[in-house]
């Protein structure tokens, strides 16, 4: 039980780090496409790690299913809206930033 709890904590720490780096990327990256990269990847993985950690600590099946369901929902929603944002940005001819 203790091992489960501590590995859950480790997962949560990793997830929080992902979230923080996603925010840093959102602030630092130069254009809309690169910011989309930061947002979708870092946040989905971060939420996945947090969910895994909490599921490891919860010790109940119903709660685990619920947590995984939330993650799945966020995953579907954010990947779909990421593609929509990117494709309509392309449609509006917003040029990607390239290395000078």
């Amino acid at each position: 039980m203790d091992i489960l709890y501590h590995s859950g904590t480790l997962f949560i720490v990793i997830g929080v780090l992902f979230f923080l780096s996603g925010t840093v990327g959102l602030i630092r990256f130069p254009d809309i496409y690169t910011r989309l990269h930061a947002l979708t990847k870092a946040d989905n993985v971060g939420l996945g790690c947090v969910v895994c950690g909490l599921a490891l600590q919860s010790g109940s099946w119903v709660l685990t299913v619920k947590l995984l369901l939330i993650w799945l929902l966020v995953l579907i929603a954010s990947s779909a809206s990421c593609h929509l944002i990117a494709s309509s940005a392309m449609q509006k001819n917003i040029k990607p930033w390239t290395r000078p």
């Binding site: 949560i12 997830g15 929080v16 979230f19 996603g22 925010t23 959102l26 809309i32 910011r35 989309l36 947002l39 946040d43 989905n44 971060g46 939420l47 947090v50 969910v51 909490l54 600590q57 947590l67 939330i70 966020v74 954010s78 809206s81 944002i85 309509s88 940005a89 917003i94």
Partner: peptide
């Protein structure tokens, strides 16, 4: 600069808010 950048951040709020709520519930 673009409107989509602002909207993306609202999406970040959603994802981050989910994580905060899950952690707070624990």
């Amino acid at each position: 600069p673009t409107a989509a950048d602002r909207m993306m951040t609202a999406q970040l709020f959603g994802t981050c808010g989910v994580a905060i709520l899950l952690l707070l519930s624990a």
